[in-house]
Every structure is written in structure tokens, then in C-alpha cells.
Design a protein around this nucleic acid. Structure first.
Lengths: 204, 204, 204, 204
DNA sequence: GATGAATGAGAATTCATTCAT
DNA sequence: GATGAATGAATTCTCATTCAT
């Protein structure tokens, strides 16, 4: 039993190493550089070994996204459980979303940035998870509307619009356009300013 | 001279045909399907011919982006020339930006969406053009602030934040997440709602 | 002893299961689909287990053929034991041969059809068994000659010629060229006609 | 013009070299050893070059068979043109068929021997050509029947039966079972004996 | 006795790019 | 100026086989 357990743990560990390696490759050189051999080299296993853990390159990409988005959903649910007041709850949610995007830029772009090539687009499952996050946003807005804090309106439309704003912000933060030698605002300044604009926009 | 001129014109024409073909391939099947052979087939020239006009695949990608963003700058300058009132001028600018993104989704994503592979990322030049658009936005905001229409603040930071919002909106519109069986707002509804949120957010 | 015997029986049983699984794979999808993994899956053992019973893929292929051809020899000997008149004995033999080919088309082709790849061609042993069948044929012809039923001649040469005729017939039956939209004769018609031609050809 | 012609000739020459190399590989080591790289090595070109001449491995296999069977048809038609008497015509045809099989054993087995794996079986076209040869045989038999030389009967059924006999003979000759240390008849003896048996079988 | 994990060799195929003509 | 021919490097994926447990 101990043996079986250890084996299962080891197997899981390698699975994770593969996914991590894939993510790192993406971050370093973009999607194209995520090759089976590249991953294999990085984890110092043979390329064939990867096929014992994932049927496909597609399956790897998919697993990365699903794994990650499940984390996002969990975090948002954790926020739900804190019993916050409507506005605080809304704010916590959007900050969580942005933070998540910054922590997982590869997965984020893969699912929402449209950078996944057609051949690897079994992304429906992870996209659905992303949609759950969006619904979470909608519920938060509805609560604030009910509390008279936000202007009335169709909450889902607002949610999509706000999601767009967050998405844009996240993209900017990820791509760090500061590298283009502009007097770029710091990440914190930018986040604070954006969140402020979003809330002011929605306010009653 | 007449001959030389005609030659130069012809040369330029083919250059443009190459770029157009590449863009069409982008639009049809995503970045991966843009191959030298594919472009060549489309314009009914040989693949080698393309190398007489562009040193690299990278150079083609670059040229596409630069060409397109020059168009954006031109349009924004055309708006400048209309002599609009500050708020109208600002609104015209952001709507122009979003429309541009929707018209040129691939160039847009290539430059701003982070979907350009490492091998094709001499994108600095086009990125700088994108920054010009951003500065244009900053000037528009500053004018509205000066007119007392927008809340005071560092206009460039606001510009970046708004740019993010526009960027997110554009990405959503481009990727058309409506396909995921949600009661998705129409493009018009979403644009109107987003523009409204942006202006309310900035308002004095 | 009882235990050892049971073990031996079990070991033999698995050996047979492996061979059967391999044959079934042959029959389903042709030679290429016979992979160690495929066999393993079919018998619900691990691939490594097969190596406890056979050194090689080659050995499996070989064993299949030897096993099968031993069956052919047995059947021919059974016919010998029936005490038939010379001509009936000859006829029973050739019909048995054709029936055998149709029952075991892949083993047949593997050994006689030249479809065995170089890597799996330790087929000498099974080929020798095939030769035994041929000798059987020669003896049958000799008997008919001795009885004045067949024209005189070197019986072994005749045997090879007849064997060729049977082989061709069998190949046609196996490959079922009827699929090529011709008004193809039925299997029975074809067999009867061929046997008739063979006997008429040999007749005194 | 001279240049274009020479180029065309050179192109054709390489195409033929590719096909020849493929045939030689088959003959040496069986179908499995016919790999793109194997062919490439043999002709001392790069593997990619082959793809300039053939889209697929399948296309190569197909081309080999079609090319060869066209030759068979041509030869049979040449025999038709000789104005031979019915029996001589029939005999010339079957000897031509056997000779052809011996000259092109690879193609022969590929099309009629069932040794082509499922993945390379766009062989319909060449099979149809094979069927033309069969029809030729049928017409020859019908002529001999009409001349009262052969026993009456459905000529196409006889043709298939005879084709089977020829096919078996050819296979034996190709595979040269003499290697199995038997007192094997010489090729000539075997052919003569078989042709004799065939004719005696059909005779009125 | 049985097996899961791992691998190396090798398969087909694609593509950007070069160069002689 | 244009191109056909050629290629090397890379990619995904499969499979027989080994070995520690």
C-alpha cells in the first residue's frame, strides 16, 4: 500500500513537472517553442515518456489550462466564503482576477488571448471554466446593484464589459509594455487607477 | 525615367500583394497557417520570389503590423483635424480604436495580444506606433481634464488604464466568446456599455 | 507434482492466449496492427509479460505459423488414415489445403505470400512444415499415377505445379477481389472449377 | 526550349530513380523497409526532395504499381496485335503474364499478394489495371472455346481459375522456395509443367 | 510471475531558406 | 526579376524492448 501510494505520488509529480515545464517554455519563447522534445529536455526525461502521461500535445495544453482555471474558481469561491460586504466582495473579486492573470500569464493568454493555434484548440473545457469566473463577476455586480451601490442595468452585460476591462489590464501587465521606454506607470499605480475607474464607472 | 517609375510602382504593388496575402492567411486559419509557400500560392508567384521583397518571414510579419498601425495613426490624426469638442474628440478616438481592432484583429493580436511567436518578434517598431496611439489618447484625456470634464489626475496613467479597457474590449470582440453558448451581449450593446463605463469612470 | 503440472498448464494457456490475440489482430487490421502493446491489451496483461513467454515479436510470428501448419499436417495425416481410394484421397487433400488457407489466411500469406517483413522472417521452420504438406501432395499424385489415373511424370514436379495452382486459388479467395465490382464467380464456383481444372490437367 | 525540355527530362529521371529505389528496397528487405529516408539514402538525395515528386508514401506505392501494370497491359496488347492462332495467342498471354510477375515481383505482390498495409492501399487504380489483364485472359479463353479447342463453359470463371493458377505459379517462382533445400524443379521445368497442366485442364 | 516506467531509434511530414539558372 | 530544385532542421508520434521492483 505504501508502495502503491508512493508510486502514485511520483507519477503525479512527474505529470506536474511536465505541465510546469510546458508553462515555462511558453513564457520564455512563446507558444511555438512548446514542443514535446523541448519539454522532455527541460525535465530531463525522454520525449516518449511524456506520451505515458499525456496522449497528445493538445492534452498537455488542455491540462494546463483546466488545472489553472480550477484554481481561479477555487479562489473566487474562497472569497465568496469570506462574508464580505457587496462592494468589498466585488473589489476582492476583480483584484483576485487580475492577480490570477499575472500569476498565470501563459494559461491566461492561451485561453483568453487567442494565441492558441487551431491545432491545439480543445480548449472548450477551460473556456467554460473561464465563463464560470465571468458569472461570478455578474453575481457580484448584481449584489452591488441590489444594494443601491451600482447604477441599475443588465448585470451580465456589465460583467462582460468589466471583464473586458480586467482582461485588458491583465494583458498590459503581462506584456509589460514598460519595456518600450515610455514613462510607464508602475504596476500598482496602474492597477489602482484601473480599479478606481471601473468602480466609478459602475457607481450609482 | 518613365520606365524606372513603372518598375518601381510594379515592385511596390507586388510587395503589397504579398502583405495582403499574408494577412488573408492570418485571418483564415490563424498564425500557424502563414507559410511562405502559402503566401506564394495565394499570389501565384514562387516562394523564392518573396525573398526578393522581404528578407525574412519576420520581416513580413513586421511590415504587416507597421503598415496597419500607420493606418491607425492616420485615422486618429484625421479625427484630430475635425476640430471636435474635447469630449466628442475623446469619444471619437476610442471608438476609432475599437473599430480598428475589429477590422484588423490579427495585426492587433500580433502586436498587442502577445500571440507573436519568438521567432517573429521584431515587433518593436510596430509597438512604437502603438505607443503613439496611446499618446494620442493621453492628449485627449488631458484636454478633457483641462476643460473640467474629467476628474484631475496624471493623464498618461489614465490613458494607459483606458487603453487597457479598450484593449480588453477589443479582445473580447475579436475572439467572440459568444460561441460558448452564453446569453452574450451583442457587439453593439457591449461597445456602448463599455464606452459608457469608461466615460463615467473618468468624469469629474 | 500436481502443483507443478497446474503451473505448466497455466503457462501454456497464456502462451496460447498470446498467439490467439496476435492472430486476431492480424485478421482485423493486417500485419501492421500486430504490436506488442496491442496483443497485451487484448489479453489484458502487460506488454512486458509477453516477453516472459516469447523472446521476440519474431518468435511470436514464428510460433503462430508453426502452430498453424502443424494443424495442416495433422489434418492431411487424418485424411491419410481414412483409407480412401487414390483419386478421392488426392481430392480430399487439395480441398483440405484450400480450406486451410481460407481458414488461416494470414498465417498462409505470412509463410507463402511473401508478406512477412524482413524483421520477422525467421520463418524457415514453418516453411519446412509447408514443405511437408507439399510432399504429401507428391505422394498422393504418385499413387494416382501408379493406379493409372494420372498421366505419368515426375510426381514432385507435378506436386509443385499443383501446389502453385492451389496457392493461387487460395490467394484469390483470401483477397476476395470480388470487391472490385466485377461479375466475380462465387467462392464455391471458383473452387469447383479450379479443382476440376487441376484434375483434368493431371488425368491420364 | 531546349532548356525546358532537358529540365523536364531530368525531373522525370529523378521521379523514376525514386520509384526504382523504392522497388529495390522492397525486394531487399520487404515492404516495411520502404521508408522515405531509405529511398532518399539510396538515391543520395534528401528525404524532403522526395516530397517534391510525390505527395505521399502512398503515392509512391501507387505510382509503382500503376506504372508497372500499364506495361503489362501494353505487352498483352502487343501480343493481341501479332495475329496469332487462338491457342498460340492464349499460350503467349499466360507466359507473358508469368514472365511479367517474375520481372516485377514487388509490384506484383503489392497489388495481388495482399502485402500492402492498410495505410497504403489506394491501390484501387492499379488493381483495376490488373483486372484488365484478367479480362484479356477471359477473351483468349473464349476464342479457344469458340474454336472448339477448349471445353465449353463460362469463360470468365475459367479465366479467374487460370489466373489463380498463374498467380500461384508466379508466387512460387518469385519466392524461390528452392532455398529450402528441396530437390526443387528448375524454373523452366516448373513453368512448362504448369502451362501444360493448365492447357490440358482446359482442353476439350 | 507480473508489471509500470522509461527509453532510443526511427517513422512521415512540413517549412523556411538558398542558389544556380 | 523570377523561379524550380534542393535541403537541413524540426515536429509529432509509435513501438519494441529493458529493467527495477
Amino acid at each position: 500500500m505504501g508502495i502503491a501510494e508512493r508510486r502514485a505520488r511520483e507519477k503525479d509529480a512527474l505529470r506536474h513537472k511536465i505541465l510546469e515545464a510546458a508553462v515555462e517554455l511558453f513564457l520564455q519563447n512563446g507558444f511555438e517553442s512548446v514542443t514535446m522534445r523541448g519539454i522532455a529536455d527541460r525535465i530531463e526525461y525522454s520525449a516518449s515518456t511524456i506520451y505515458l502521461y499525456f496522449k497528445n500535445k493538445t492534452e498537455i495544453v488542455n491540462a494546463i489550462c483546466v488545472d489553472t482555471f480550477e484554481t481561479l474558481i477555487e479562489r473566487l469561491e474562497e472569497i465568496d466564503g469570506r462574508g464580505l460586504a457587496p462592494l468589498d466582495h466585488f473589489l476582492a473579486g476583480i483584484r483576485c482576477y487580475v492577480a490570477f492573470g499575472m500569476e498565470h500569464p501563459y494559461q491566461y493568454q492561451l485561453v483568453f488571448g487567442g494565441s492558441a493555434p487551431a491545432t491545439c484548440s480543445d480548449l472548450e473545457e477551460s473556456n467554460l471554466l473561464g465563463m464560470q469566473a465571468l458569472e461570478h463577476l455578474g453575481r457580484g455586480i448584481a449584489r452591488c446593484q441590489a444594494a443601491g451601490l451600482f447604477r441599475p442595468g443588465e448585470p451580465f452585460t456589465d460583467a462582460v464589459a468589466v471583464w473586458g476591462q480586467l482582461h485588458g489590464l491583465t494583458s498590459i501587465l503581462i506584456n509589460d509594455h514598460g519595456k518600450y521606454k515610455m514613462p510607464w506607470p508602475s504596476q500598482e499605480t496602474l492597477i489602482d487607477c484601473s480599479v478606481d475607474l471601473i468602480v466609478r464607472g459602475l457607481r450609482a
